[in-house]
Amino acid sequence: MASDALQHCKGKLKIKFIINIHEQCLKIVSATPNNKQIFIDCLDKGFRKFIKNKVVSTNTNSLKLARLLAEYTDFLLRQRNKIVEDTDFQENINKIMIIYNYLEDKDIFEKIYNKLLAKRLVNQWHTSNDNEELVIKKLQVVHHSEHILKMQQVLQDFYLSNNITNEYQLYCKKQNFSSIRFSVMVFNSHSFSLCNSSSLTLPNKLERILNSFTEFYNCYHTGRKLICLYEYSKGEIQTLFTKEKYYLQVSTYQMTIILLFNNMSLWKVKDIEDQTEINTKLLLQILCGLLKSKLFICTELDQNKVEEDLKETDINTNYTIKLNDSFTSKKCRKKLNKPVEPNDTEALVKAIDRDLKVGVVGDFDGQVQDAFAHINQILVEQYYADYII
C-alpha cells in the first residue's frame, strides 16, 4: 500500500512537471513582441516534439503518460475539501487538456479514464456531477470518439439510477413488500467498463430483495438481463451479539459470510465456501480481513500472529471460525469493507501493453530533465531568425 501511494505521488509530480514546462515556455512566448503567431506555432511544434521524443519515445512510455494523466485527473475529481475551488479546478483541468491535446494515443487515456470514471461513480468517490460533465465535454472538444460517448452514457446511467431506486421504493409500497433500505445503480454493459463478479450465493433475505427488484425492472425493460457486480456492492449491518450496538459497513461478500452466523455459531472455512460459493482465494482474503478486525476468532491460529502479520495462506479450509462475543470498537460505526474488487485499471493497462508489443520502459525522469532547455532553444532560434530577416 505504501509503495502504491509513493508511485501515485510520483505520478502526480511528473504530470505537474510537464505542465510546468509548458507554462514556462508559454511565458516566454507571451513576452515576445506583439505575441506573434509564429512564436505560438513554434511552442506548439516544440512541445509536441518534446512529448513525442522525450516523454513518450517508446510505446510503453506513451501508455505510461496516458495512465498518469488519467490518474491525475481522477485525483482532482475525488478532492472533497474546499482547497480545490471551482476556479482552481477548471484551471487545473485546462492544463490537463493541454497535455491531452498532445497525446497521440488518446484512446489509451480514454480507456483508462472511463474505467476510473466508473469506479468513482460506483464507489461514490466523485464530489461533483458538474465537474464530471465538464471534463467529458472538454475531452469531446479535443477528440470525439466512441470512448467518450461511453463516458457520457455511464454518467447518464448514473443519473437515471437515482430515479430507478425511488421508483422501486414506490413499487415495494404498492406490493406491500417490506424491503430493507436499498439503492441500486444500473449501467449499460456496453458502456460500463468494470469486470463481472465472482460467484456468490446470497442469504435468503438479500436474494428475495434482488429477485423483487429484478421483477420490478423487467416490468419496464423487457429483454434486458441484470448482472450483479458484487465486488462493488456494500451494505450496513447492526450487531446484536455484542454488549454495545455497532453498525458495520461491509461489502456484500462480508455481509453474506457474517449473516451465516445467525444460523450457527461455528463454521468451518470449507463449509462457509460451500454455503456462499465464494471462490477459495477470495474467501480467504475476506476471512483474513475479518479476523484482523477481531470480529471473527479462529482458535487454530495464534492470536499474536493474527494481530501482527496474518496472511490468507495461514488459514486452512479445515479451520473453525466463530464470532467474537467480546468484540469492541472505539467507534459505533466501523468500516470493514476494505476493497476486494479486482484492479481493473491495472488489468487494462497490462492488456494495452500486450497489444502494443513493447520492450523495456525507459527512464522517464532522465528523459524529461533536458526538456525545457530543448524547447527554449527552439523558441530562441526562431525568435532571432524572425528579426534577423
Rank of each mutant, 00 (worst) to 15 (best):
N324H: 12
Q303R: 14
D370I: 04
D365F: 10
L301I: 05
T299Y: 13
K338P: 00
D302Q: 15
I352K: 11
Q367N: 13
K270A: 04
D274P: 01
I278H: 01
Q369T: 15
L287I: 05
S265H: 15
T317W: 09
D314G: 07
N304Y: 09
L323F: 04
R354V: 09
E307K: 06
N318S: 15
K330C: 15
L287M: 02
V306F: 12
I315P: 00
K281C: 09
K357W: 09
K335S: 14
L260F: 14
D353A: 10
L283Q: 05
S293Y: 14
Q369F: 11
Q275S: 12
E308Q: 15
A347I: 09
W267I: 00
K330M: 09
N324D: 09
L310H: 03
T328P: 02
D325F: 00
S329N: 13
L295V: 11
V361I: 11
T345Q: 03
L290H: 06
N263I: 06
A347E: 06
L295W: 08
C332W: 12
C298F: 06
V269W: 02
K294T: 10
T276E: 02
T317Y: 13
T328V: 12
R333M: 13
N279V: 13
Q285Y: 03
D370L: 12
Y319W: 11
G362K: 06
L282I: 07
L282D: 07
K292H: 06
I321S: 00
D363M: 01
A371I: 10
G289A: 11
I321P: 04
Q275I: 00
T276W: 06
Q369D: 10
V349I: 15
F296R: 05
V306N: 03
K357Q: 11
T320K: 10
I297P: 02
E300F: 12
K350R: 09
V361R: 13
L356A: 09
G366A: 09
Q275W: 08
K331L: 05
V306I: 15
K334L: 09
D353C: 15
F296P: 02
C288Q: 08
L336Q: 02
Q303D: 11
I315N: 03
K311F: 12
F364W: 05
L301H: 15
